[in-house]
């Protein structure tokens, strides 16, 4: 059982959610960064309690290895998360240039989407 990991991930998810629900671009961005990390850690806990196990490199280890699959999955997820975060950064920048605001609430303040333009 990995109670501390579970709690840590809970805290991360909670904080990330709170940040994402804010209006400021920066906080939203931070929120997503934390959220990605939280999800990665969650996947990491799939490999079980690492106590008494060794890094998944055959040869060095003198005992059982931890499950390497979650680590590989996380690596993939981290890189994907990086790509998406980078895109998000550029998007926020672009929105800032177009709308001259860094506040999501202000962005949609007075729009009527039933009529385009």
């Amino acid at each position: 059982m990995q109670i501390e990991s579970a709690l840590l991930i809970g805290v991360l998810f909670g904080c990330a959610t709170y940040l994402i629900l804010q209006n400021s671009f920066v906080k939203i961005l931070f929120g997503f960064v934390v959220l990605t990390n939280a999800a990665n850690l969650l996947v990491l806990t799939m490999s079980g309690n690492p106590g008494g196990k060794y890094a998944p490199i055959v040869g060095d280890a003198a005992g059982p290895l931890v499950d390497p699959l979650p680590q590989a999955l996380i690596l993939t997820a981290i890189v994907i998360g990086f790509g998406v975060t980078a895109y998000l950064v550029l998007l926020l920048y672009r929105i800032f240039l177009d709308q001259n605001t860094t506040n999501a609430a202000e962005l949609y303040e007075d729009q009527d989407t039933s009529e385009h333009t």
Partner: peptide, 18 residues
């Protein structure tokens, strides 16, 4: 909502890892 999400995820991990 944030608390909810946090608790949900923690529970998920504990429950599934049990």
């Amino acid at each position: 909502l944030s608390l909810g999400v946090g608790v949900l995820m923690t529970t998920f991990i504990l429950w599934f890892n049990a």
